[in-house]
C-alpha cells in the first residue's frame, strides 16, 4: 500500500502563530540517561540540543516570528536558517499533537 500524500510540512505556520506545549506534554531531564526528553502520551522523545533550545523558548505567549528572532540572536545564526529549522521541527510535533498552536486547539 502507498504512503498517503502529505502536504508540505511548513504549510500554514505564520509568524503570528503562538505554539505551546499542551497539557500532557512535558519537557524534562532524564537523569538516568543524562539527556533531555519530551514526554507525551505514550511517547518519550529524546531531544537534541536544537530541539531542546526551540522547545525551551515556548512560553505560550511569544509568537513564532519573535521566537525565531530570539533564537537567531541567541545562537548568532542566520534568521532564514533558524526559521526553516524551527518551522520544520514544530510542524512535525504539531502533526503528532505534541505542540499546539494557540487559537487552533
Amino acid at each position: 500500500m502507498n504512503a498517503p500524500q502529505q502536504p508540505p510540512a511548513t504549510a500554514d505556520l505564520d509568524d503570528a502563530a503562538i505554539p505551546y506545549l499542551p497539557r500532557g506534554v512535558r519537557l524534562q531531564d532524564d537523569r538516568v540517561r543524562g539527556i533531555r526528553v519530551l514526554q507525551a502520551p505514550e511517547r518519550a522523545m529524546q531531544l537534541d540540543a536544537v530541539g531542546d533550545a526551540i522547545l525551551s523558548e515556548l512560553d505560550g505567549e511569544t509568537g513564532l516570528g519573535a521566537l525565531i528572532d530570539r533564537l537567531a540572536q541567541k545562537y548568532d545564526a542566520p534568521r532564514d536558517q533558524i526559521a526553516e529549522d524551527v518551522r520544520g521541527f514544530l510542524n512535525g510535533l504539531i502533526d503528532r499533537r505534541m505542540v499546539f498552536v494557540r487559537g487552533r486547539e
Binding site: 500500500m1 498517503p4 502529505q6 504539531i94 502533526d95 499533537r97
Partner: peptide, 16 residues
C-alpha cells in the same frame, strides 16, 4: 490497514 492509512492522512494534526 487501509482505513488507518486513509484516516491518518485526513486527520493529520488532529488525531494521532
Amino acid at each position: 490497514r487501509a482505513v488507518v492509512n486513509e484516516a491518518r492522512a485526513r486527520l493529520r494534526g488532529r488525531l494521532v
